[in-house]
Amino acid sequence: MTKKILTVDDSRTMRDMLMLALSDAGYEVVQAEDGIDGLETLEREGADVVITDINMPRLDGFGFIEGVRANPAHRGLPVLVLTTESSAEKKARAKEAGATGWIVKPFDPVKLVDVVRRVSG
């Protein structure tokens, strides 16, 4: 069965890049533009893996992940954060919010798919 990936990013460029890399790898992709949109889209469409940006208007990536985890149904859902910062602090905060792992921007499409596969099987 095709796995569905929800990408949450306020940058259209980044959404397009993710779409390109993931759909090439055979994933179905749904998109959201910020944390709130992301939570709504997740409730509406569901997803097997979520990839989210951190800096977004309205609700940032940390808040979004907390929101995802707040729903018991999504407690085991793999959520990857996209971060340009390779700082340990950002990762630690993401982890604290409940992130499964991270992808460092700019990402190599192969690496991206690799990480997605690593957390989703």
């Binding site: 985890r69 407690r75 085991g76 793999p78 409940g98 499964t100 792992g101 957390v119 989703s120 099987g121």
Partner: peptide
């Protein structure tokens, strides 16, 4: 487990 990681994987 809470962060969505999976030992099996």
């Amino acid at each position: 487990y809470e962060t969505g990681n999976e030992p099996a994987l």
